[in-house]
Write a protein that binds this DNA or RNA. Structure first.
Lengths: 376, 376
DNA sequence: CTGAAAGCGCTAACAC
DNA sequence: GTGTTAGCGCTTTCAG
């Protein structure tokens, strides 16, 4: 039971055991193991051999305690099993590993309480910093103390306008504008939007304050696009649905079966796109013909579908990577100024936009596509 | 810089700070905080108030050190951004959280060295146990010591025949047999298989020893199915491809464009199915007509595609959940006998199987579908 | 170059 | 009920 040499059941060897076997002090053993150059080659060898013989592994917990850093970062994310976040998570874990950090992952389902709870747990586990995908644009009390973020923090994918912390996002506002332009160039004049959101209540026309920034940006950009072409901005054509295929399909169906309703839909993610496609299947509507679709996020199936789906491709991997790098930079140098990055999406036009008429002319000279940015 | 009361920069309050403020000893403070009932209500209140005032959070590292458990488990998985593993991961994280455990996730890309490295790191971080998706059926030296698993361990999704540890899998062997039966019932006599695997070399006909158990089982089951109907078991019709869409498509194309080649394909995952669909697109083949497809894993898009894809739906969430529960049971009671579970898949027949002729009769009286099991 | 010793913050005996 | 104290295993001055 208390056999010390056997693996499995016996206790793990400690630094002291190694030191004893190598006939040196703990301090020397530690130095040898950690590659300090204040050790003779011969003693170092003795220590290494001993460590090897005992199959010694440092106790990271003990090291973390005394060193004051756990080399662990926390990731607070909406839902790992989402085709966007899973890839972001992949990037984060891999990038962190490259720098010898591990990551503790927690899902929130975009629930604010769950998010606060996750932060609490991570704080207790003494992560060195965290990356969070905030579930609210406005509520962030759980992320700060009186003087700023509780620990080094970077926001991924979504901004919190009032919180000055490192943030890594994409230019969704202008991508939405571009999507509208694409629709307009194929003659679509009645545009709708299907927003897949945890918070699926219809939001206020002017300032959907409860929503996360990505959705806020996409909706705002979409509406700015409508204005650019003087197209009808009909509130009921911007519909919200839950993260639930059946519900999303029913909303999509309503959108597409309204007489005189939209002929083209912009969706905020791949799941919503699937709902639109399904609705078209059910209603026997010609997607890519009289009906147009553009979706945010380039899911693996999007280019295999027939018609292949036009998408706003987001640099997911790079986003996750940047988040980690921003965080690590902060860890290295806590006084460093906050650095945020907005990365560029790419509109990939495939076959789902369709064609219903000649290009719609812009209302007045269109603003440069270069520098549109959201107000919030 | 060393401001103690300010958040953010100042040091975090310790148990001792709380104790002092509440005018009790550390022990009492600890008891109050941890809900021991050997404390007066009044002192408990004082302590709680103090803790609150200081915004105290236990130092989980310190607790872990002295308690001897970190309440953290490690997850070593092939690739989180895969539509199967992402959902399994989701289940694992959520189930663990429910029991107040957090999860450290590491990707291996099915690389054995990466897996060994991951295990090493997790061991150093002193996780209480780990769940691993092993990248080899035969190499597991990094998982054990002379007396058994290094720490409580459960294998997810794939077995290691020679390793007696808790394992949670699905009955892929019989599902593959069933898939063959389904093809046979629609007249398909020439069946092929597209295997999407990190280890994409063609494996030996009889014992693909290098592959992971799921693939081994699926291929074995497939071939058993062929035997059942006395169908041609042509080695070149079982093709392996990398986790790379272009490559998979080219392999699928070869499979489908061989004159006299297979008219139906069983794929081992959703990505491979996408490759087959893409190949059919390119070759203008009538999927769901003269060409049949069944895929392992029910991806979100499978039922939305036209034709909708027939699949072997695997109980992913339950699988992850069971893995955690098995592991925690082991943690509770280390002497407990190893418990493994094989969960049942469900063949969902949609519209991609097609029809090429009357049902093929079984060669001899077919074995009961009930209890087929792989040899390895 | 090497060793002794003081913590890191908490839990769990063990006294009172 | 509450306090004292001895670790948990490591890093890191500070001496030698």
């Amino acid at each position: 039971m208390s056999d010390r040499s056997a693996g499995g059941v016996g206790k793990a060897p400690r630094l002291e055991d190694v030191a004893q076997l190598a006939k040196v002090s703990k301090a020397t053993a530690a130095r040898a193991l950690n590659g300090s150059d204040l050790v003779t080659t011969s003693t170092r060898d003795r220590v290494l051999t001993a460590a090897n013989a005992l199959n010694y592994r440092v106790n990271g917990l003990a090291r973390a305690m005394s060193a004051g850093e756990s080399r662990t970062i926390g990731l607070v994310i909406a839902d790992i099993s989402n085709s966007f976040f899973d890839r972001a998570t992949r990037a984060i874990i891999d990038t962190a590993a490259k720098h010898d950090y591990q990551v503790l992952v927690i899902n929130t389902d975009d629930n604010l309480d769950a998010e606060a709870q996750a932060v609490r747990v991570l704080l207790e586990k003494r992560v060195d910093g965290m990356i969070v995908v905030p579930s609210s644009r406005t509520k962030y009390g759980h992320l700060i103390s009186s003087t700023g973020p509780l620990i080094p923090l970077v926001l991924l994918d979504r901004r919190i306008p009032d919180l000055t912390v490192g943030t890594v996002t994409t230019d969704d506002y202008s991508s939405a504008v571009e999507a509208v332009r694409l629709f307009a160039s194929r003659g679509h004049t009645r545009l709708g939007m299907l927003v897949n959101s945890a918070d699926h209540r219809e939001v206020d026309g002017d300032d959907p304050n409860g929503t996360v920034s990505t959705i806020f940006d996409r909706v705002s950009g979409f509406r700015a696009g409508l204005a650019e072409f003087d197209l009808l901005d009909e509130p009921t054509w911007i519909r919200y649905s839950r993260h639930d295929h059946r519900h999303a399909v029913s909303v999509a169906r309503e959108l597409l079966s309204t007489p005189g309703g939209p002929t083209a839909i912009l969706t905020t993610n791949a799941d919503a796109a699937l709902a639109v496609i399904d609705a078209c299947n059910e209603l026997h509507l010609a997607l890519g013909g009289k009906i147009g679709l553009v979706s945010f996020d380039d899911a693996p199936w999007a280019q295999v579908f027939r018609p292949s789906i036009s998408v706003v491709d987001r640099p997911v991997y790079a986003l996750g990577q940047a988040a980690v790098e921003t965080l690590l930079a902060q860890l290295q140098n806590r006084g460093a100024p906050v650095r945020s990055r907005e990365m560029r999406n790419t509109l990939i036009d495939r076959d789902s936009v369709g064609y219903v008429g000649p290009p719609v002319p812009p209302h007045r000279s269109a603003p440069d596509s270069g520098d549109l940015s959201p107000s919030g």
